[in-house]
Amino acid sequence: MKIGIPRAFLYYRYSSLWETFLETLNVDYVVSRETDKAILKQGTIRAIDEACLSSKVYLGHVDALLGKCDAVMVPRIANFGKGNILCTKFSALYDIVDNTFRDNGLQLVGYNMDPIKSGGELAAFLDFGKKLGKKKPESFYAYTLAKQAERIDRQETLRQHEESLRKPGIKLLIVGHCYNIHDKYIGRPVLDYLATQGVTPVLADDADRRKALESAAALTETMPWIFNREQMGAIEMYRDKVDGIVLLSTFPCGPDSLANETVIRRVKDTPILNLLLDGQEGNAGVETRLESFIDIIRFRREAAYGEA
């Protein structure tokens, strides 16, 4: 059996966990290609028009896997335990995909992560292994290796992250979900543009997650979504170490609309750019906003240190 993994949403958080788990269990898999215009177009056709851009991209990736695998992997991740919920999209995703592609005879596999109602991640992965026809000890071993791979991956990310914080020149904290920032069609053009301007992007998503969650309390006591709390914690950790903050969201993200408002109201001493992406053709608007934001930061630095 060959599993298809959509290169979207939480793939960007769990790629090493998922891939190592499947590889250790000798399960063949394929990851959909990087997002392009055709994927977004297919996803837009598949999705209801009120869905967020990122979920349209996700459905486009599922579409791109049709005929390329025997089953598509769609996990249901509802929460990380009490008080740590995710956007509803992640707990609804399995049903959304199942329903959207019901006429395509699409097989789905996945794990159900819902610690509030059932077990934690290990239990979910043991169950996932069972669905893939693997015995419990095999799945346990694969999960252990996968967690190890995830940890090593994360350490490397953290090392690069700390390196970026030490770089001279203008640094901007990029606050956004991993699946938006790393997507080739959505967030990567923003990072590429910053590179052409000689600006170092520091990704909030790369911060140490445990420390970030602890720091978040200074900015919010009630933010329900854990991913947004991680990002807000990173803002609290780095607001004095960067020249500005870019809030990068896709339209119309519910959690981000609340989180961004909170950040704009509570972080007053650092310039903030609220960048909303909607898959528009042409990036002139985005470049105008980024360029002027960088100009303003340069003016501030010139005024503060007399440097150009």
Binding site: P271, N274, A303
Partner: peptide, 13 residues
């Protein structure tokens, strides 16, 4: 402030 741009905002979509 003092002839230097310190902040700005632009309409979104």
């Amino acid at each position: 402030e003092n002839g230097i741009v310190v902040d700005y905002a632009m309409n979104t979509l």
